[in-house]
Design a protein around this nucleic acid. Sequence first.
DNA 1: ATAATATGCAACTATTTAGTTGCATGTCAA
DNA 2: TTGACATGCAACTAAATAGTTGCATATTAT
Lengths: 112, 112
Amino acid sequence: MDDVFRALASPSRRRLLDRLHSKNGQTLNELCKGARMTRQAVTKHLALLEAANLVVTTWQGREKLHYLNSVPIHEIYERWIGKYERHRLQALSELKKGLESKQVNITEKRYG
Amino acid sequence: MDDVFRALASPSRRRLLDRLHSKNGQTLNELCKGARMTRQAVTKHLALLEAANLVVTTWQGREKLHYLNSVPIHEIYERWIGKYERHRLQALSELKKGLESKQVNITEKRYG
DNA sequence: ATAATATGCAACTATTTAGTTGCATGTCAA
DNA sequence: TTGACATGCAACTAAATAGTTGCATATTAT
């Protein structure tokens, strides 16, 4: 679990997760494109994500495919959010989305 | 949002969140007891948590009370977990708990 | 008033981390 | 079978971070 938080701590790694979320199963090279760092740096980040079990990989010939695994994220959620709190937060979040789609601005801070 | 991940990155800060989760509204001094660092270090951690809006505070005389705010955690959850994936993960997690209560061991890795 | 309590602010150090460059290995295609 | 491609591994540097010590400020209790 410790690995998960460490892995999520870096913006670069979160961006990688975002990219896998939008398109799963990408190769290292694919993930390098658009990243503002060397391939070697990306490799290191992916290694950390994999160690944290946030990313799962398979080899296909000389290419390594990367997949997002959401289980650890779910475990974070369960750690600090009570069973009954979940419904409330879900409702809140959907309300917020609804309002945003009507161009009404709500700041983060308002939800105490 | 960036602040949230940075704040969650440190085990010391996660322990503080755990303590607030089990007992909300504690003072700085209360939170210092049992922590293996100086009060000043705890203060810094709480400042980061507060900046990330993971902790909310109120003053009461010379005492500062700290409360856990779970909204940012929920936002992490929504970022990488698709709407329909949630039910699956919830079911999985409850299955796991059920099995664990029967003394059956399941490793993290099994959930791809 | 004064002492004790609760907290804040700042300078410093040691460690960790992100990113780099350089070189090695394994696979595919002509 | 040779050249191009996809990836891995290691040493290094610069920046960020966790924790410390020391001192300051504000509130409560005697």
